[in-house]
Amino acid sequence: MTWQKLLRHETILALLTVLALVVLASQSDKFFTLDNLLNQGRLMTEVGLIAVIMTFVIITGGIDLSVGSILGLVAVLLGVFWKNMGLPLPVAIGLGLMVGTLAGLINGLIITRFRVPPLIATLGTLALYRGIAEGISEARSVRGYPDWFFVLGQGQFWGVPVQLWILGVVTLVAAIILGTTVWGRGVYAVGHNETAARFSGLQADRIKLAIYAASGFAAALAAVIFVSRVSTTRSDMGTGIELDAITAVVLGGTSIFGGRGTIIGTILGLILIQALKNGLSLAGIKSDGTIVLIGAVLILTILLSNLFHRNGNR
């Protein structure tokens, strides 16, 4: 009984992460320097923000494939609002965040009002939002943002990258909401058995609507940070980031069928992926080789986890 508890998915993952960190540190003395670790945190933030909210989405039994496209759309609109329409940059950022939230809300409405399966609904909006971004930008990029804007993506606060603070706050708030509030328990209930959740008085649709809107907001926030980090706006930004985020969430032990998962698992998943990417590249392996390893780790972790939990097939 106790050893079964010890073999929880998060424990397996934590051990795997520590093992990876030790092995990687022995391969290169640059790996365990503070500079390197903080820089890796910087690179992790955009996927991280999306993955934290994606954890909620997947716990409800849903999925959001459109986040990468929302990121691209908001990035393009940021440039349009600021450069073409001449709005002050803070206003442009505010509008961008609103558009992202609205895009997420539209996903939620299609899913809850019309009962379209989330995979299909967000597959449609993946094409739609990216299509709008491409149509508006026509492959032109926007540059020349004011210096203060780069603080978000390139600056530091108390020696830690600014966006890592943002990721930290979002993660903490998300973990508290999911782990300790009644609303958070409702999220699990909806994912575990939606009909039962409805009958026990939970407003399942409202919970889902809020989560998809939050997912859009997270993607928009990631877009602002992304633009600030790379100093430019392009319509193909964030392509495929949904798969990275889903990989981190699933690696973190969240069941793709819903009803089970934790924020701490997702963060462990993120750290493991980023550590592998960075450590292997420092050890001289090309980043494409690392992607192979991440795919293999994803499959093997779930396989191991399934072997230890034969009876619980959720």
Binding site: I63, L243, I246, T247, V250, I256, F257, K286, D288, G289, T290, I291, V292, L293, I294, G295, A296, L298, I299, I302, L303, N306, N313
Partner: peptide, 23 residues
């Protein structure tokens, strides 16, 4: 037989194939 959801297996396979090809 491994009882892994197909979206997870193929997501992993996507990384393996894409990364393997380019590297």
């Amino acid at each position: 037989y491994g009882r892994i959801p197909s979206i997870v297996v193929t997501l992993g396979m996507l990384s393996i194939l894409r990364g393997g090809l380019v590297s």
